[in-house]
Amino acid sequence: MHAYRHFPILDPLLPIGLLPPGWPRSRAREVCVAVYDGLLQPAQDHVRAVVSRFAEEPHLDIRAHTIAGMSAGIGHG
């Protein structure tokens, strides 16, 4: 995940047709989505467990967001 965060700095953001063959933009995004979204449930469970130790009432409305949800603006605002 940390390495992926540096990729946007290296990526010239050119259209795919102008990039060299094998440019890893799509594959890097696929890996990031798989890792990030794959950790969604364990991360959400952990945060809920920590909050429940300190809160008087459970905060079951705590939800993690997927990359697709964040891209669509779901959960922001």
Rank of each mutant, 00 (worst) to 15 (best):
G17D: 14
V51E: 07
M1K: 10
V33A: 09
A3Q: 11
A28N: 10
L19F: 01
L13C: 01
R53P: 04
L60I: 00
Q41S: 13
G22D: 05
D37N: 10
T66R: 10
L40T: 01
Q44I: 02
R25G: 02
R53S: 08
A28F: 11
P20F: 07
G22V: 05
H46I: 02
R5Q: 13
G73H: 09
L60V: 02
G75Q: 09
E57V: 12
E30T: 11
M70G: 01
A3K: 15
V47I: 15
I16F: 12
P21R: 10
R25L: 02
I62D: 04
A34G: 01
F7D: 08
A55M: 08
D61L: 12
F7H: 09
R48F: 02
V51I: 12
G22L: 09
G73N: 09
A43D: 14
A43I: 09
L40C: 04
A55W: 07
H76K: 13
S52K: 14
R48N: 09
L39M: 13
H6D: 15
G69M: 05
I74M: 13
L39D: 06
A43C: 12
G77Y: 03
D11M: 03
V33E: 11
H46S: 10
P58E: 08
L13Q: 11
G22P: 04
D45P: 00
A72Y: 02
G38P: 03
P21I: 06
A49W: 06
S26C: 04
V33Y: 06
I9R: 15
P15I: 03
P58V: 04
A64Q: 09
G75I: 09
R48P: 03
G77N: 05
Q44W: 04
D61A: 14
G69V: 00
Q44S: 05
D37T: 00
V50C: 10
V51M: 08
I67P: 01
P15W: 04
F54R: 13
G77V: 04
F7W: 07
G73K: 08
P15R: 05
V50R: 07
R5S: 11
V50D: 05
S71Y: 06
E57Y: 07
P42Y: 06
G77Q: 06
M70H: 12
I74E: 15
L39Q: 13
L18A: 14
R48K: 15
H6K: 14
W23R: 01
A72M: 08
Y4R: 03
R25S: 10
S26Y: 13
Y36I: 04
A68M: 03
V50S: 05
H6I: 08
V31L: 14
D11C: 02
R25V: 01
H46Q: 11
S52N: 10
G73E: 07
P12C: 00
P24E: 10
S26L: 15
P12D: 01
R53D: 08
C32H: 15
D61N: 14
P21H: 04
D45Q: 15
V47M: 13
P20G: 04
H59T: 01
L19N: 07
P24G: 04
A72F: 02
E30H: 12
E56D: 13
F54K: 11
H2Y: 06
V47S: 03
Q41L: 14
